Amino acid sequence: MSTSKSRLSRRAFTASGLAAIGATAACSNGIGNTNDVKIDARVNATLNQMYDRYPGTRDLAQKSAGMLVMPLVTEAGFIFGGAYGRGALRINGATVDYYAALKGNAGLQLGAQQYSHVLFFMTDAALARFRRSSGWTAGADLEYVVIDEGDALTADTNTLTAPVVAAVFGQAGIRIGATIEGSKYTRIIP
Rank of each mutant, 00 (worst) to 15 (best):
G107W: 10
L110D: 02
L60T: 04
L18E: 10
Y115Q: 01
L60P: 07
V118K: 00
Y84T: 13
F120H: 01
L102R: 14
R10H: 08
V43I: 06
G77I: 03
G17V: 03
S28C: 06
V37E: 15
M122D: 02
T24M: 03
Y98V: 05
L89P: 01
D124Y: 05
T34N: 15
L119R: 01
A125R: 04
E75R: 12
T123Y: 02
F13E: 09
L110S: 11
S9I: 12
A101T: 14
L18C: 02
D59M: 10
R53P: 01
A41M: 10
S6H: 07
L102M: 00
D59Q: 12
Y54D: 00
T95E: 03
S116G: 02
E75V: 07
R10Q: 14
H117V: 04
R90C: 11
R86Q: 12
R7S: 10
A19E: 07
A25N: 13
G56E: 02
A15P: 04
Y54Q: 03
A128W: 01
K63M: 04
D124E: 14
A101N: 12
G104H: 08
R42F: 02
S9Q: 11
S4L: 13
A15E: 08
D52I: 07
N44E: 12
L18I: 08
F130C: 01
G32R: 09
M122P: 06
K63V: 04
A41E: 15
R53S: 13
Y84V: 12
F13G: 05
N44L: 09
G66T: 06
A20D: 05
V73S: 05
T123D: 00
G81F: 12
I31N: 13
R7D: 13
Y99P: 00
I21L: 07
A26Y: 08
T123K: 03
Q109R: 14
T3C: 13
T95K: 05
G22E: 02
M122N: 11
